[in-house]
């Protein structure tokens, strides 16, 4: 919304100063408003000083392009553009996670025959043996654990 000249004069000094600032920044005035209020005139003077002395215009296209090229080169030389620090940290975490999963699974699969063979000779004929159930629970537990770890930030 563009601030425009109010149709009726406002008494509020906040509004008066805001309107004056809008006019100054829009280049619509270069003189102080004829305010009888000394304090307000002082504030308007400060607005004029800020506008005249400190640079606040948007950079031109050439500057923007130059900055963009310079930034690309700085980011590249800092080794960040292709792989930010946090991203490589994330990759390391994934690697560790994958390695852990493989080790656990290998251990389980190596352990299953031993568990089964050590279980004795006469077992029930129907259903899973307790050792198999144990192995399945271990695998299931590992999968759940890995999923949980994977979703942790």
């Amino acid at each position: 919304m563009k601030m425009t000249e109010p149709k009726q004069p406002t008494k509020n000094p906040d509004d008066l100063l805001a309107d004056f600032t809008d006019r100054v920044l829009d280049g619509k005035t270069a003189v102080l408003a004829s305010s009888a209020d000394d304090e307000l005139r002082g504030l308007e003077e400060t607005i004029m000083r800020l506008n005249q002395v400190l640079p606040h215009k948007a950079p031109d296209e050439a500057t923007l392009k130059r900055l963009q090229a310079d930034f690309t080169s700085r980011a590249r030389s800092a080794g960040r553009s292709s792989r930010p620090v946090w991203q490589s940290r994330q990759s390391r975490q994934r690697l560790i996670l994958a390695f852990t999963a493989i080790v656990i699974l290998v251990a389980i699969f190596i352990g299953i025959p031993f568990l089964l063979s050590g279980s004795g000779n006469i077992q029930a004929t129907a259903g899973l043996q307790p050792q198999s159930i144990l192995a399945l629970v271990a695998i299931g537990g590992t999968v759940v654990l890995l999923i949980w770890l994977g979703h942790r930030k």
Binding site: P55, L67, D70, F71, R74, A75, A78, R80, S81, P84, V85, W86, Q87, R89, Q90
Partner: peptide, 20 residues
């Protein structure tokens, strides 16, 4: 003015680094 571009680029380099 002499340092504006350097500081501007430092802001974005810091943003790039800590965007994660």
């Amino acid at each position: 003015e002499a340092d504006v571009e350097d500081v501007t680029q430092e802001v974005f380099l810091a943003a790039l680094k800590s965007l994660g």
